[in-house]
């Protein structure tokens, strides 16, 4: 295994059943993602982008094939191991922020850190991160009291709290206006360039591709370019 790659996916396939119809969401996809890459995945709706991202981020498991992350074959892991992997090494940002409504911004951010550290330490780390992202005034706001851009920044901070090696983002700017989108992408660029975090992101917006170091395009569950 070449340690140049942080993710190495080999021949992964994922099918869904819709009644009697079998849908091949991703079909025998192999992809290698280099350490420190900023990879953007594009493709039309239904091309399999999100399904691929879910497999790579260990939110789902492929029907066949193998996914190595930092040389570890994650397809052999049980759910407990996958969960630990997600907690310690991966960060995931959902299109619709996926914040816990009952928790304030800082509580949402500190939640993954509370699995590893005391509340006090987790809170301090969360505050530092939120400060970096310009959210220091919003720490005690509930998600419903934040704008879309602010919520996405909170989601980014939450993904970063345990210092992951890889960040996965599923159309993180889809619900944001131009300014907020640029903010989010600038953060990703900073994390990628200054913190050497590998970023794998799905986008629909051609202008966002300018931020990418590499790109793949999916069509009908296959990589076409």
């Amino acid at each position: 295994m070449n340690d140049h790659y942080i993710i190495k996916a080999e021949s992964i396939t994922k099918t869904y059943h819709s009644g009697r119809t079998i849908i091949k969401a991703i079909d025998n996809v192999s992809i290698n993602i280099a350490k420190g890459d900023f990879l953007m995945i594009t493709g039309r709706n239904g091309s399999g982008k999100s399904t691929l991202l879910h497999q790579l981020a260990l939110l789902d498991s492929p029907d066949s094939g193998a996914i190595h992350i930092e040389e570890k074959n994650t397809t052999k892991l049980h759910e407990k191991g996958r969960m630990e992997f997600r907690l310690l090494r991966l960060g995931y940002i959902f299109q619709e922020y996926a914040l816990i409504a009952e928790l304030t911004a800082i509580e949402n951010v500190m939640l993954p850190a509370m699995m590893l550290e005391s509340i006090k330490k987790a809170k301090r780390k969360a505050f530092e991160l939120m400060e970096k992202l310009g959210l220091e005034e919003k720490v005690n706001r509930l998600p419903s009291e934040l704008s879309g851009g602010e919520q996405q920044k909170v989601a980014i901070a939450r993904a970063l709290i345990n210092r992951p090696k890889i960040i996965f983002a599923d159309e993180p700017t889809a619900n944001l206006d131009t300014i907020a989108s640029k903010d989010v992408l600038d953060i990703f660029k900073y994390l990628n360039q200054k913190e050497s975090i590998t970023i794998v992101m799905i986008t629909h917006e051609p202008e966002e591709l300018a931020y990418a170091k590499s790109k793949v395009q999916l069509s009908d569950g296959r990589i076409v370019s």
């Binding site: 630990e84 939640l111 993954p112 699995m115 939450r158």
Partner: peptide, 16 residues
């Protein structure tokens, strides 16, 4: 249900 899914996704163990 959705919040429970999110908690699992960010690495919170099911028993918690």
């Amino acid at each position: 249900r959705k919040e429970i899914g999110i908690l699992r996704a960010i690495g919170i163990k099911p028993y918690i």
